[in-house]
Design a protein around this nucleic acid. Sequence first.
DNA 1: GTCTATCGCG
DNA 2: CGCGATAGAC
Lengths: 260, 260
Amino acid sequence: MKIATWNVNSVRTRLEQVINWLTENPVDVLCLQETKVIDQDFPSLAFTNLGYYPYISGQKSYNGVALISRQPLIDVSAGFSPILPGLESVWDEQKRVITGVIEGVRIVNLYVPNGSSIGSEKYEYKLGWLKILKEYLQTLILSNPAISLCGDFNIALEDIDINDKVKIDNHIMASELERQALRDVLNVGFADAFRKFNSEGENYSWWDYRTAAFKRNLGWRIDHHYLTPMLYERAQSCIIDIEPRKLVQPSDHTPVIVEL
Amino acid sequence: MKIATWNVNSVRTRLEQVINWLTENPVDVLCLQETKVIDQDFPSLAFTNLGYYPYISGQKSYNGVALISRQPLIDVSAGFSPILPGLESVWDEQKRVITGVIEGVRIVNLYVPNGSSIGSEKYEYKLGWLKILKEYLQTLILSNPAISLCGDFNIALEDIDINDKVKIDNHIMASELERQALRDVLNVGFADAFRKFNSEGENYSWWDYRTAAFKRNLGWRIDHHYLTPMLYERAQSCIIDIEPRKLVQPSDHTPVIVEL
DNA sequence: GTCTATCGCG
DNA sequence: CGCGATAGAC
């Protein structure tokens, strides 16, 4: 089973690229982030025409996640609150979480808040959101220990995941508090699929649109697949496909694919 | 000599279409309106690469005119004030006039104000502008009686120039005051080149983007070539090329070409 | 740099 | 409907 994660930075603007990529790379589940579209305007037909089942959770302008699956998913839900019923609904105003089950594997697709800058209100929101995420995963794992967690985490856990032109010290997406919060999430029982197969640097999934970052390979590895132990053992490969980032009018992120 | 007028509704957005059209239709002078770009950002290179000489007068966002000539032009000037030195400079804030001479023929390229709605401030500006235009042409004609006047006039002089779905009575671009003002301009000594060759209705140069106007052929003939007597006698043809209006992302206007 | 929403304009 | 400008996000 192949699962891909891709922050497409507007599914409508990127639709042709996404459809072309999915045609060339017929993964079982494609996890999209930053779809930037309300559900009624999501271009579902383009995916159903390809034989895929789209499950979507979107909002206007910002955020938005989707699961595009070759087989129907079961136990699909969006947001934290279906799993954490007591939760204040404010945590689900931003559409950043969607999950469903295929062949016994629970796929969780995330768009972690960016955090803007260290110490900002959005930074606090990001840290708080990661705390909720931990509870969410702790709950999910009780009923199904096979979880494949992926998405745009907006965090690079190790310095090797960041190009060396960046002054990492207290940089957003690399600060100790963010890394600590993410490690705390992963301590629920997840391991990084990419690092099972590759311990090299200069493997990035995101390059800023500005300053010709892609051409100079000044990227970050912030899009991840994290697997619970059974799935981690089962994983056959995890690769970053940089081809879509080379196209004209690309997303600033590129797909990462794990094979289970 | 062939002269074309085309309101391109942003020369930058339409650049590929304009270059393709000019390659297929190598007219001697292409008169553009609504270039919507300041002079330093005008895509001159695309035209010089084709062997044309661009003469431009633009502003940010709105208006903007250009003469694209196969031969260098002489006596080029933009705005009314170079010809009417006493004029208040406010009449040249909007870039709507450019002129130059080729083979003894003075080309005048206009983007007449739209006028918004009857009785509005913009309507009064349009009427005032046409008064200045008359003085401008009266002055020009003194030193050169061979004038080819073209552009987007935003006025249909006769009901036959307007599709019959429009309630013409007191419609902007068809009101009696606008028509009177334009007739007054033409009385300086100009005749409509198109009507030398064609007396039929349903010949339009502009179709509103809204309400699928082009598909239903609900157009207006508001882009004109007006000629002083010598040139009118000399005119060989005047045709409207509706092909560019059929393209994807077209201008709402299409070229009109006169052959002298 | 790129994308979205909103606005003025036509 | 489609263009450009602007503001906010990332």
